[in-house]
């Protein structure tokens, strides 16, 4: 096998010449930069926790429910035992719905963060206004 030609490694988007004022704050790890980053992290983590709580409430309560109400094992819906309908069919659209809502909001949070970073781009790179807190 022939030796492949030496590769040029491209690892990211090309860098801008002058970084934005607010990204400079994040880069320099100033208190303000920490606030910017912290707000994104908190939003994303809170969103994930909300999604997982919905998962726990939607699916996680099923075993307890069936333990507390043993009569549920005899319930049939559309000819199927209730447990089979819940776990064999309905669980999957529920999971996809949760995932889809999460994805839209997580990307929304990131877009908001990018906007926040770029909002500071005034003449000469000075911030136009203080960030909203």
């Amino acid at each position: 096998m022939n030796e492949p030609p030496a590769r040029v490694r491209v690892t990211g988007p090309p860098r801008r010449r002058t970084p934005l004022a607010r990204t400079r704050e994040v880069d320099a790890e100033t208190p303000l930069g920490a606030v910017y980053l912290g707000s994104l992290l908190r939003e994303q983590l809170w969103l994930a926790v909300r999604t997982l709580v919905a998962l726990a409430l939607g699916l996680g309560v099923v075993p307890v429910l069936f333990l507390l109400v043993p009569g549920l094992t005899d319930v049939r819906v559309l000819g199927l035992p209730l447990a089979w309908l819940l776990l064999g069919v309905l669980a999957y659209p529920f999971l996809v719905l949760l995932g889809w809502r999460y994805l839209r909001r997580a990307e929304g949070n990131e877009d908001a963060f990018v906007e926040l970073m770029e909002a500071g781009r005034g003449p000469g790179g000075a911030p136009e206004r203080r960030p909203r807190r």
Partner: peptide
């Protein structure tokens, strides 16, 4: 019977947990 449905449900739900906390 039905308690074994937790295997496929869990194997799918694992991806929701992965999506929300780990993927990106």
């Amino acid at each position: 019977g039905a308690d074994m449905l937790w295997y496929p449900v869990g194997w799918t739900a694992g991806y929701l947990v992965l999506l929300t906390l780990v993927a990106a």
